[in-house]
Computed example of a mutant assay.
Amino acid sequence: MNKIIGFIGCGNMGQAMMGGIIKAGLAAPDNIIVGDLDERSLKKASENYGVKITTDNNEVAKNSDILILSIKPNIYPIVIKGIKDHVRENVLIVTIAAGRDIKGTEEMFGRKLKIVRVMPNTPALVGEGMAAICPNDKVTKEEAKEVLHIFESFGKGEIVNEKLMDVVTSVSGSSPAFVYMFIEAMADASVLDGMPRDQAYKFAAQAVLGSAKMVLETGKHPGVLKDMVCSPGGTTIEGVAALEEKGFRDAVISAIRKATQKSIELSKL
């Protein structure tokens, strides 16, 4: 990809993206320019990845072929107001802010530009992110694939319809918190039964990681994989029965749907 990739915002997600892009060879460090008011974050990005840095967002806006707005949703209006007259007509703008839909972003820029709305998640920080990619009607299929490749450099990605973004927010964006709670609960039970806590976290976390990998790599239905572990009259089916008795599935479904509804409410503010 022989294009200049610009970042406005140099936080954890932005730096995770830079690292993935460079590691995958999608862009050389010299072709990445990063703007932020936090000079410490800029220095860290420069030291870690060798990218160009600046405290002037307009410098990033003017020179980028792909412009990634890696900033908090609440400061989108302020940042866009400052750069909107400096972005080129054919720039590809990537947004990663929850609750900021494509139409709203277009209105902030005051003109129709190529915009790709993306919802990544925090496992991107360890190279295992999941991102939903949604381009507007000005973005070509090839350009959408370019953005997809960027996010696949530190995890996986899927192109989705924008109407699914609130569901993506819950099932992908919010759900890591639910998984951490599950890991913590399994570790607490193991500690209760005598296992050292550090060891308990390792066993529980690796079990979740391996199980997720089984779903992705075998292509088998999660129910089939569950049945493979459940021997008749064994320990696993005993635990499954306890989870069902406590309403495990209902609780998870409720959590995901509550998060989706909250995302819908926030997008209307």
Score class of each variant (00 low, 15 high):
E162S: 13
D198A: 02
L243K: 03
N57R: 08
I53G: 13
R100S: 00
D30T: 11
E107M: 15
N121C: 11
G104E: 06
M228P: 04
G50I: 13
D30W: 06
T169V: 13
G11W: 10
N90H: 05
M195H: 03
G234R: 07
G104A: 09
I66H: 09
F7S: 11
I80H: 00
V208N: 01
P232Y: 07
E217T: 06
L225K: 05
N90G: 04
E265L: 12
V240Y: 01
L164E: 15
A204E: 02
L216T: 01
A200M: 05
F203D: 02
G99T: 02
E47Y: 09
G219F: 05
V240R: 00
E59D: 09
S263F: 04
G11Y: 12
P29V: 10
I71V: 15
E158Y: 14
P73C: 01
E106A: 08
A205F: 07
L148K: 14
E47P: 09
V94C: 08
K3Y: 12
K52M: 15
V167F: 08
R111W: 13
Y49I: 14
D65I: 07
V118N: 07
I133K: 03
A28I: 11
V168P: 09
N121R: 12
A28H: 11
V215P: 04
A24M: 12
V171H: 13
N63C: 08
E238D: 07
I33D: 06
P77G: 00
M18H: 09
K220E: 05
E142I: 14
V94L: 06
D85P: 05
E184N: 02
V179C: 11
G14P: 02
I22P: 05
E107Y: 10
V160T: 14
G223E: 03
L225D: 05
V91H: 01
K62Y: 06
F248I: 01
D193R: 07
D250V: 05
G223V: 01
A205S: 10
S153N: 06
D30R: 15
L243S: 09
N63R: 14
D193E: 09
L225F: 08
Y201W: 06
I53S: 13
P196E: 06
V240A: 01
G50M: 14
G9F: 00
M17K: 04
M186F: 01
V87E: 03
P73Q: 04
T236P: 04
V34H: 11
V34M: 09
S190T: 03
G127K: 06
K226P: 00
V60A: 11
